[in-house]
Structure formats: C-alpha cells, structure tokens
Design a protein around this nucleic acid. Structure first.
Lengths: 333, 333
DNA sequence: GTGAAAGCGCTAACAA
DNA sequence: TTGTTAGCGCTTTCAC
C-alpha cells in the first residue's frame, strides 16, 4: 500500500507538504504542488480515508437511515440523496434501522460514529443514533422536534388534490388509507394527509362522514388493490378517490381493473408523491408530484451546515418543499 | 467524546481489555466483560470506526458502485444488497460512478480506499476503483474477467421466455431493444438476452429475420412506449413480444394501451427481471423473475471471502442465479 | 513555504 | 487472563 510518506519521498518533500499539496492549500508553491501530484499519480496513491477521518473527525459520509428500505418511494428517495451528496463531494451510507436493533429490541448502533450526519426517514426508534449526530428528519411532522426537518407539502398538496377532484365534478370523495398508523409507522405523513383531506372536503361543503368516507386498508400497493376491490364489491359509490401515496393509488387502479371498473369514468383517482411509475400505468395516474430534488438539496444543505458549525445553536428548522399537480388520465374527464 | 480509554477507566481495566470485552473475545472473564459492557452503556460509548478501521485495515463497508443510479431496477437491486450486507453486519456505501469522473473524464476516486470491497454494476469505466479492491461485478458477462461475477440467468431465462410465448401460440415473435449497446452501456445483459432470444427463435423453427424481427428502441420505459406505438402504427404484425427488461415491457404495455391494442389477445408480452411493478400493471406482466435475493447473497459471499482471504489466489468465479417464469395476464390466453 | 513532532482512537504483538 | 508498548496514515500545531 502506498502511503502519503511514499508520495512525499518520491516528490522530495515531507509528508506534511505532500498532504498540503494534495489538498490544494495555496501556501504550497505551485511547483511543489505539481511535483507532489505527479508523484501521487505515478505511484497510484489513494488516500486512506480512515486515517484522515480519525485525524480530522470528519468522514465525508452521511448515513441515510430508514426503517423499511423497500419500495419505489424509498428507493427513489434514497437515490436522490445519494446523487445530491455525491454532487457535494460526500458519500452516502445506507442503513436500515431494523438491522440496528438486536434480538431484545435494543439499539446496537456503535457503528454509527463513522458518518458525519444522518438523514432519517421513519427512523424514530433509532434515537441514539439520531441524537448523537447532526441529523435531519424527512417527513416527520413532529412539532417542536429537536431536529431539522424537511417535509413534503402534505397539507397544501392534499388540499390541491381534493380540490382537483372537486373541479372534476366529484362530489362523493373517498379517502384510501387508515387513520391509526400501523405499528411500523410509515404514518406521520399519512396522518397529516388524511387529516388535510378530511378538512378540505368539509371546507368544500362535501358530505363527509368519518366512518363511511374512508376505505381503511394498509398503506401499501396491496392495500390499494384491496381498496379497489371494496369500492366495487361493497358498492361504495365514491366518484373520486384520494390516495395519500402513489403506491396506494397504483394498487387502487389495479384493484379497480380487476373488477372492470373504468377510471376515470366510473371513479376518478389521484395519488400523491409523483413517482415515475404513474406515468406509465394504465390509466396514467394524476398525482401531486413532490419536489424530491429540492428535498434532497434542502436536507443536505441543512445537514452540512450543522456538520460544519457544530457549535452554532441554531433552532431546529423545518423546510417544506413545493409540489406540482400533474393531471393525467386517472382524473381527466 | 467518550473513548475506549474512558470506558476502560470506568470499568477499572485497560483499554486493551475493554477492547477485547467489547468485541466479545472469550479470553476475557465473563465478569470483566460484564463490567466493561456496563461501563460502556453507562457512558454512552460509541466506537470510533475510523480508528478501528485505520488500525485493522478493515472498515466493514462495501461500496455499491453503479453508473446510473435511477430506476426501479437499480434501486431495488441496491436495496437488496444493503439488506444483505446489513444482515452480515456490514454497511453499504452507494456511489454513482458518474460522480467519480472529473471534468476531463479522469477517474478521481481517492475516496475509495475506505471501503473493503466493491460490488459493481455497469461500472466498467471505474477500473481504478475496481482493480484496487476486492470486487464483484454484477451482470457483466465478460469472459475471462479478472473479477468474480454474479449474473442473472440471461440465457436460460430468455430461452424460457421465448418458449413460453411459443407455447402460448405465438409464431411471429418480436424482440424489443437494440443490438448495438448505447454508449452508456447498460448493455451487456441486454446483448446476451437479445442473442439468446434470436437463437431460441431459430431453434423453434420460427421465421426470424435480423432486420424485421427487432423493434429497435432505447433500453428504457420510454423506449418501450415507443415500441408499443410502432407495433400498432407500423402494423408490425408480431403476435408475441419479448422484452429483455421489465421496464421496457411496462413501457410497451403503456404504448400499446395508447393505441387501444389488447394484451394478450392482439399480442402477448413478456418481460425480464421480475420487479414488483409487474404485479400491479394493467394487464399484469408475465416475466422471468430473477432471484435477486440469491444474487445479493452470492455476491456478498464472494466478496467477503476475498476480503477475508486477500492472499488466496482463487480464480475468478461466476455465479449464475436461478429464475422463475411467472405467467400473468400479459401472456395468459 | 516547508519541516518536525505529536497525537487522533483503536488493536496486535508481546510480556507478565 | 490482563497489561504494556507500539503504531496504523494522516493533519495540525509550532518552529524555522
């Protein structure tokens, strides 16, 4: 293994100077810098990040921490963060918080000290990890959270979705999902969206009934399928369905197709998130497209600030990104 | 920051003993171990991985290196690897090789020395990184590769897909994709699949014409849409379409839907990969479901072996995982 | 502008 | 079984 010392010797300087040159510090003579760079190239030198990290206390790495790691939503989100971090010259470690718990359900997270910060989503129970690092939470919605938050526009987006259904002539709007978040709690954003939907329906003067306006199913594609089946089998009579996630909505489309229901003629369907799949479904899916790129940028910006100014006692901040209503076939009529 | 020394002092032992206890080495008295663990817990000790890594030369981290980081296929693959690595007590760093190149297209990958190994897919141009680490390549298909490979059953799976179409009565089978891999080369597996498809068609005695049996479009969902359109607009007359990826196939379904074509009545469609989306499309998608779980397990096993036995000169090995043909609506007739 | 020395937190050898 | 010593490769004082 070729170390800094080897490079230094090759360039006829000390390790100190070589280090400075490699990092482009301008106190070093251009000539010296050049010599060092050439030596590094010649020897195929690659810096030992562990050593650097040990010395500086920074690793240039951020952990993306999530409970469930599966599904189009989480993975596409994770990929955007990886891209944004790479763009900033940082690296992303991806971690499922479920592997952080031992058999007794205790948090075993010694391995965390390595990364400079954490971007967490649905990772509340990894509190040790979060509290011992600069952390940003995604889709959290906790008021008075000790962490910076970056959220989707769940309220505004949901209300826009409901109004869209209304404008399309829907007068009996159903909500797909459920009130009580399941144990695994992919639920914070879900709850906010359900509440906002209910609120907006009432504002629009629509008949709305806590009991009968909800198709209560699990928050998943299969849950959506089930909801679609129920719409038909139980003759629920909604002319518009709001799904608080695109996964749910795509499931609904599939469930309705199973029963030969025509969308949007028999019932209009709108989702939330704006994942790519909705562009290709049959029918294509109207949705509230969340600006994930901005979410990634905002979260990384907040996090790097905290990392670089560890002593600054800035109050936790919440960023809510924008959205765009995309009308596609599932509500076009 | 609380270090090993602090823990040791609290437990009334030396750092060495504390270290051994924390790592569960059995030379340490149970009583001592217990004391150390208690001290660590009490002080909220978290190990500094950088220091450990510097000392041992291992970081417990593997880099998942991919050119394009987007799309259901790559992200779901990445997630499986993360899960498998976590299961093994390791961590996954995710890296897009495109951020590895500087403006001049030179590889700048100093940051790599940190991880113990690389799992690469479509990452051939990151050769410096690959060659300087234990590496496993996914979907590579290069003969005489210097790296261990883990591949999908592209040949066998493709032939099964073609035979399936044949058994369903298809006699004019079209292939979607293209022969010449595009510059970005997500193409190795594509080429293998196209070739195998051609071969199997000929074996079955089907009329097959290099020029007219191929719908040449980009390897993407949009490419699939285009292929669907062409099938209808150019009256290509295929009664069965083989798509070498599910993304392509889902695009085809959408493109055919745009033209009001009935699948599978007018034309049967089969994909390749087995991503979840195909369970929910309309119609649902028949596919060759690759055993991604085994891919992840095999790759991680090969890699950890190389990592733990750096001096063993084992010849590069290729693992081809299994598949299952899943018949769904798009070919059910 | 460059160098010498110290030390980040940990673990492997060796000694007791 | 436990402790002592040394050093992994790097960057940061502090001298010059």
């Amino acid at each position: 293994m070729v170390t800094l010392k080897d490079v230094a010797k090759e360039a006829g300087v000390t390790a100190t100077t070589a280090s400075r040159a490699l990092r482009g510090m301008d106190m070093v003579t251009p000539k010296t810098t050049h010599r060092v760079l050439a030596a590094a190239e010649k020897l195929g030198y690659r810096m030992n990040i562990s050593a650097q990290s040990l010395r500086t206390g920074k690793s240039g790495t951020v952990t993306f921490l999530t409970a469930g790691i599966d599904g189009a939503y989480f993975s596409s989100l994770a990929m955007r963060f990886a891209a944004e971090l790479n763009r900033q010259g940082m690296h992303m470690l991806i971690e499922s918080s479920k592997y952080l718990l031992d058999d007794q359900g205790n948090e075993r997270d010694m391995s965390y000290l390595f990364s400079d910060g954490i971007i967490g989503i649905n990772a509340k129970h990894a509190s040790k990890a979060l509290s011992s690092h600069p952390s940003v939470l995604l889709e959290d919605y906790t008021l008075d959270s000790p962490y910076d938050q970056v959220n989707a526009p769940s309220q505004a987006g949901t209300r826009a979705a409901i109004r869209h259904l209304y404008e399309k002539g829907c007068r009996r709007i159903g909500l797909v999902g459920h009130d009580i978040p399941p144990e695994s709690n992919p639920g914070a954003s879900q709850q906010v969206r359900m509440l906002a939907a209910r609120h907006e329906c009432q504002q629009l003067g629509l008949e709305f009934d806590d009991e009968h306006s909800l198709i209560s199913v699990p928050w998943s594609r299969d849950g959506g399928v089930e909801a679609g089946h129920r719409w038909a089998d139980d003759r629920l009579g909604f002319d518009g369905l709001f799904c608080p996630s695109d996964g749910l909505a795509l499931g609904v489309l599939r469930g309705l197709a199973d029963r030969g229901v025509a969308v949007p003629q028999d019932v209009a369907v709108i989702g939330f998130d704006g994942i790519e799949d909705g562009e290709y479904s049959v029918p294509t899916l109207s949705t509230i497209a969340v600006d994930f790129t901005s979410m990634a940028q905002a979260a990384v910006a907040l996090l790097t600030h905290r990392i670089n100014h560890p002593d600054e006692e800035r109050y936790p901040q919440t960023v809510t990104v924008g959205y765009r209503l995309i009308e596609r076939e599932s509500t076009r009529r």
